[in-house]
Design a protein around this nucleic acid. Sequence first.
DNA 1: CTGAAAGCGCTTACAG
DNA 2: CTGAAAGCGCTTACAG
Lengths: 336, 336
Amino acid sequence: MVTMRDVAERANVSIATVSFVINGTKRVAPETRTRIEAAIRELGYRRNVVARALASSRTRILALLHPYLEARPIATANQFLMSAAHGARERGYDLVLWPVNDDEQMSHLLAGGLVDGALLMEVQLRDPRVDRLIASGLPFALIGRTEDEDLPFVDMDFTTTIEQAVGHLRSFGHRRIALVTLRMRASTGNEPGWIMRVKSAYRGAMAAAGEPPTVIAVEGTSAGGRKAARRLSEDFPEVTGVVVVNEGASAGLVKESRALGRSVPDDLSIISAATTAELGEMIEPSLTVMTAPATELGRLGVNALIDQLEGVPDAPPNILIPCTLVPGQSVGPAPA
Amino acid sequence: MVTMRDVAERANVSIATVSFVINGTKRVAPETRTRIEAAIRELGYRRNVVARALASSRTRILALLHPYLEARPIATANQFLMSAAHGARERGYDLVLWPVNDDEQMSHLLAGGLVDGALLMEVQLRDPRVDRLIASGLPFALIGRTEDEDLPFVDMDFTTTIEQAVGHLRSFGHRRIALVTLRMRASTGNEPGWIMRVKSAYRGAMAAAGEPPTVIAVEGTSAGGRKAARRLSEDFPEVTGVVVVNEGASAGLVKESRALGRSVPDDLSIISAATTAELGEMIEPSLTVMTAPATELGRLGVNALIDQLEGVPDAPPNILIPCTLVPGQSVGPAPA
DNA sequence: CTGAAAGCGCTTACAG
DNA sequence: CTGAAAGCGCTTACAG
């Protein structure tokens, strides 16, 4: 292994000067710099990141904390992950995956000194992990929000998204519009914050329209979607438009509605928000979707955290991004 | 921050002895050990992983190398990732995500000394990244195989999977059975090794059955699947059974086949291999699938790498796992 | 503009 | 069974 000492010897300088050149931390005479750069090139020197981390007490490693789920097929989570990792690398950081479910494991990890900061996914309204994070003093950014919106976060703009979804259906003449959202398994306890925000945005939009709300919460699976279809059909036959914010359930909802003899979109118009266009296309008929800004949020979350770590002066404040409407074939005029 | 020195002082021992207790690297008198453990507990001491890494020249960090794709909705990739990260943590390692596309970035990362080993996804038959890895001297394990099967890998057992898929269709009386697989964009160059292996397993199975093979390669999207459906219908109307090994295309294939007036499974039976049951359920009719052993492979890949790093004596050899058949509604008797 | 030196917090021969 | 000490490869005041 070639070290800084080797470079220093070959360039006839001290290792301090080599360090200054590599990090650009101090002015170095152009001629000296050239000599050092040549030595680096000739020796193929690469700075050892572990030694650097120990000396500077900055590891340039970020943790992505998320519950370890027996991976549901959530296309958006994957997008998020990839873009966060990519965004981190672009700024010279590495991203480690920490699939932790209980906060005991978590504080163990936090205390190890491996990471400079943490990104937290699947944030709940009252999230014990956030309390841990605060207590640990480790910088962090949230993907999603707790009740307390003063913490650093990036999130979807549910209000705008839901307003647009409801507005889209209303522009087709729908009046009775239901929301199908996610129900967490009882054992999970606290809910992700977005579920509450989606519900309240939906209630707000319906109130503004002067229509009664209908909220159905089911598991994020095809089975959950089928259940929602049956409830709609049996208990709320007057509903003609549905906003789904439950990626895993959207397919089951459409399938079962059709199996119950309800045509999509002739009898029932469906718009699925916070998902991907590819997923919408897999379904028959191709769903009108609102695509989640997962790629943007991954990058923004990582940047927010790094800005914080590096004390960037004009770091952007908390950011909300709405989903983007991609029309498909699942929304049509309300039946007469 | 509380250090080993603090613990040593409180317990009236040297830091070496503290280290021996923490790592279990040397016998320590029970009484001394008790004192040290008490001091650790009382001070809430946690070993600094960076210092440990520098001193021991082992970081206990593993890299997961994968191309940075604008995340296709690949459910199996997500499963793989999660179980690899989880498996690593269970053995005291961390997993960093390295979304690298060119091997120049890659050798940069490898030379930094951050990781003890690498896991490589999306392995191609001739993979320049593998050459880099070998040249760098860094231990690694492959998820998938190159041409050279002497390198450490874990992979799906395509031969068994395809034989079972073909056998399943044949047990329903199908004789003309096509394969729909993945076509890489031209620009990508080399193909993942599994594409070739799937094709040759399929050809072998058809030869054994005394039937002619029909191979259709399309992009891994709904659009690709629709294209495959049109080709089947126009160019190979005699085909009544299809084995799909193209997760992203399966939905489009079914949708377009039905749009062309072909009933699934009455006119066309379809079995989708190397995917998830959830994805199969999203489609109408629910697909008969063979689920990918992604969770197992993630864990096994990580274990293979760690066994190698730790010199585990009886480390299992390269492992192949077939997919598991999960019957749905997309396979039926061959039309008369 | 450059260097000598201390120090980051551990591990690990080596000695006793 | 335990300790003193060197060393991992850097960064960073401090001095000149």
